[in-house]
Amino acid sequence: DRIFMTRTEALEFLLKAHQTAVDKIGHPSHKQTPADHAAIEALDRLLLDVRARRVDQFQINASAAQIIVTD
């Protein structure tokens, strides 16, 4: 599946995904793992790359739809 978004929409989408990941590892019942921190770092890099126009398409994980940034 493909989803087309403007750059602004894609950045909002990534910010929400980032916040969800941060909230998940901050929850008291969740045991933090290196994979959790790696996922947040990957989202940080992706946010910067989309914002800087170095990336025009991405996929958060293998089961997610491919996001295509349109400007």
Rank of each mutant, 00 (worst) to 15 (best):
A42G: 05
A38E: 10
A21P: 01
L47M: 12
H27L: 12
A35I: 06
V50Q: 00
L48D: 15
I68M: 06
F4A: 05
A10P: 00
A35R: 07
A10F: 02
L47H: 03
F13Q: 04
P34D: 11
E41L: 08
G26P: 04
A52I: 06
A35Y: 07
I25F: 09
N61F: 09
S63L: 12
Q66E: 12
R7D: 01
A62C: 06
I60V: 07
L15C: 08
K31N: 13
Q57H: 14
D44E: 15
A17Y: 09
A17M: 13
G26I: 11
F58V: 02
Q66F: 13
Q66H: 12
S29N: 14
I67K: 01
A35Q: 12
D44L: 13
P28D: 11
Q59H: 08
A64I: 08
F13V: 08
I60T: 05
A64W: 07
A10Q: 00
A64V: 08
A10L: 02
R51H: 11
A10C: 03
I68C: 05
H27M: 13
T33R: 07
R51Q: 14
R45C: 05
F13C: 05
E9C: 06
E12D: 14
H37I: 14
P28W: 01
E12F: 05
R54E: 04
S63K: 10
H27R: 12
T8K: 14
A21I: 14
A39P: 03
A42K: 13
I68P: 01
D1Q: 02
D44V: 15
E41Q: 12
T8W: 11
L11Y: 07
A38P: 04
H37G: 07
A62D: 15
N61R: 06
D56V: 11
A17C: 06
E12M: 06
D1F: 01
A10D: 00
H27S: 14
A17Q: 10
D56S: 14
I67C: 02
R45M: 08
H18L: 15
A52F: 11
Q32Y: 09
A52M: 14
I25L: 11
A65H: 08
I60N: 02
D44Y: 15
I40K: 04
V55Y: 02
V22D: 02
F58Y: 02
D36F: 07
S29W: 03
F4M: 08
L43V: 03
R2N: 09
V22E: 04
L47I: 15
T6R: 03
A21W: 11
D71P: 07
Q59W: 11
F4P: 04
S29K: 10
T6K: 04
F58K: 00
E12T: 05
R45Q: 14
L48Q: 15
R45L: 08
Q59L: 06
K16R: 11
L48R: 15
S29T: 12
Q57K: 11
V69N: 01
I3D: 02
Q32H: 14
A65N: 07
E41T: 09
T20K: 14
L11K: 01
T70L: 14
A52C: 09
A62H: 12
S63W: 07
P28C: 06
I67P: 00
H30E: 09
R54H: 07
T20R: 13
A42R: 13
A38L: 13
E9R: 04
A38R: 10
T20Q: 15
V55K: 04
D23P: 02
